[in-house]
Design a binder for these strands. Structure first.
Lengths: 113, 113
DNA sequence: TGCACTACTCACCAAGCGGTAAGGATCGAG
DNA sequence: CTCGATCCTTACCGCTTGGTGAGTAGTGCA
């Protein structure tokens, strides 16, 4: 399975980071959680238009396993689950900021040549 | 096809950048070219242990299309092709540096808990 | 004569990533 | 007594990603 078979020997720090952030929605989840602080499952789903429940659960589980997000379950009815970033997740977001800026500049350059 | 069907509307700068850097060997190619300045096809292949020729060609073509690498062909026999980074490629590498540092720290943390 | 070297190109194939759809546990509302 | 809300889980399936191995062109070298 991908979840447990990952984390091979890394050649440099980049692919160690890419391993953790690769996935169609992971960077968006990171951004949502950093922006809003704490979000429930349904809030995340509504905040990421187009994501399927399966992928959202799967990515959240992997990111929890990777120590990026914290999952807090409240045993209520109906159930409530809140997700937030760990310190690792926040520092990853910090590390991603220059990349985001680069991407934004690039988008601007492509849009208006 | 993946090469031409990419570049959809981006939600934030991160996925614009991820679109360009996602691919098993792209970050390594970036690192190799940044580290060595100019490399021939065979040198890159030997520098990235495990890469298949097909993937190396494919990634180099995509990165050339994306304006990250420059391709210089010398019409000799045997043929010689040299790859180097463009300004965009170098700035992307700069933007990736914090991510690489994060990944390195994380690797260290995982290796020695 | 024939093989090697370079930088590919092409055809085929396996794995897995991601999407769709359905179900399920629990309780309040109507 | 069924419906809806919430947060998932499971099964299935197609497309993309990446790997393998073969072929190509022109010349040098044994």
């Amino acid at each position: 399975m991908a979840v447990s078979a990952r984390r091979g020997p890394y050649i440099c720090g980049i692919d160690a980071a890419m391993d953790v952030v690769s996935g169609k929605w992971k960077s968006l989840i990171l951004w949502e959680l950093d922006h809003h602080g704490t979000r429930r499952f349904g809030e995340l789903r509504r905040g990421l238009p187009g994501v399927s429940e399966k992928m959202l659960v799967q990515h959240l589980r992997e990111m929890e396993e990777d120590g990026l997000v914290h999952r807090e379950v409240y045993r209520e009815v109906p159930p409530r689950v809140e997700y937030s970033l760990t310190d690792d997740g926040r520092s990853l977001n910090e590390a991603l900021r220059p990349l985001g800026a680069w991407g934004t500049q690039r988008s601007a350059r492509l849009a208006a040549p």
